[in-house]
Design a protein around this nucleic acid. Structure first.
Lengths: 157, 157
DNA sequence: AAAGATTGATCAGTCAATCTTA
DNA sequence: TAAGATTGACTGATCAATCTTT
């Protein structure tokens, strides 16, 4: 079933990523929802606010680096705001802009949820790879996480 | 550079998978939609039918191994059927069951779309990893794709 | 005119309830 | 009663159009 041709190796690794993502993501999202009542899209936003200076970011900044929602950040922030975990504030000096600010409730639920989420990942995902394999995967996929260009890509300047 | 604590190595590899999936998947799905007018969920169903005996499967079989839709196979098949790529047929001997059968149009679009899709993956994903890295990722994530360990050590033929 | 963000319309996915047959 | 599949109601995501401010 697999493809042994050397020039198709990338297909096996791509399929592995697709399957691993589908299976682990689904399981841990269910667990998190049952535990904290929030989804991974919430975590993504709350976590970026949590790590930001003054625990706030503009809509545009949230939108740009989002993994999940590509155009619907307004709607997502609506829901998080309705849950009480963020609030919108005006940007001094630019009345078009909106700051999204983490509330104390948001900080609290994030810190609880991220712990639960990491425990879920540790349980569902961690035991399926050896330490060497984890290291190899982390290294191989590093550039996607940190948005560096491929090693031999031309550098624009 | 990365998180060097041994007990957190799995987090880096998990994050890598999440990010790689998000970025590659989104890009290749866009390309496929523009080229063939079908989504990767269509490809998933059409491909399994394409590889099945008599190019047909029951709803239940489609549902079980599906990566994407966990309860909504009826709706997905509705759309694929409306596009003319599959048709429903009754199962002889069990009037509860439904066969989903690949049509000639479905076979044609699948064979065209899967080629385009693989070319897209080769362009978007393949160059970002070395051959060694592809091999390591494919090997590490093998168990998610197949529900068994890899047939043997990395192939060197 | 362009940037920042929201809105409306639409499409896709999910869960429980339902219907038919075994 | 249970299995196989569909339906209805709801939640989420996406795209173009819109509104306000620069």
């Amino acid at each position: 079933v697999t493809n042994k041709e050397p020039d198709r190796l990338w297909w096996d690794s791509f399929r592995g990523i697709i399957f691993a993502h589908a299976k682990v993501f689904h399981a841990v999202e269910r667990d998190l929802m049952e535990h904290s009542g929030i989804s991974l899209t919430f975590i993504d936003v709350l976590g970026r606010l949590h790590d930001a200076p003054d625990q706030q970011l503009r809509m545009q900044e949230l939108q740009q680096e989002s993994l999940f929602t590509h155009g619907g950040m307004t709607r997502l922030v609506d829901r998080i705001e309705a849950a009480g975990y963020v609030r919108r504030e005006s940007v001094p000096g630019d009345r078009r802009g909106v700051f999204v600010v983490l509330t104390p409730e948001g900080k609290q639920i994030y810190e609880s949820a991220i712990q639960k989420h990491q425990a879920d990942v540790e349980r569902e995902f961690s035991p399926r790879l050896t330490s060497e394999q984890h290291r190899a995967v982390a290294d191989a996929l590093w550039s996607f996480w940190h948005d560096e260009p491929p090693p031999d890509a031309p550098q624009g300047d």
